[in-house]
Amino acid sequence: MENRDSQPLTEAAYYILLALHEPRHGYGIMQTVREMSRERVNMGPGTLYGALKNMTEKGWIEPFGPESESRKKEYSITDEGRRIAAAELERLQELAAEGVKIILGSG
């Protein structure tokens, strides 16, 4: 398989993975992402639906709990998802560190 660890995640994907460190349903994810980003990231339900479907297929997240078939379906992050989120965090830290050095000149 192609190694995509170094591929940046979209902001929406990264926030969804963060939000799902605790099991949540669709509305809960949207609210959490909004709060985490201080209202900056307002994810549309169509975008979220597609992202959840994709991430489930990739095995980054999975349906959670007894309600997994109902409309209040909850999702939770998998070990693979945690690994992907951690790799993204590392990438972001590197980006930020280089920026601090060069832009802010505090090398």
Binding site: A12, N42, G44, P45
Partner: peptide
Amino acid sequence: PFRVYTDRDS
């Protein structure tokens, strides 16, 4: 604001 799709990919 209500938008169904909010990123370029979707």
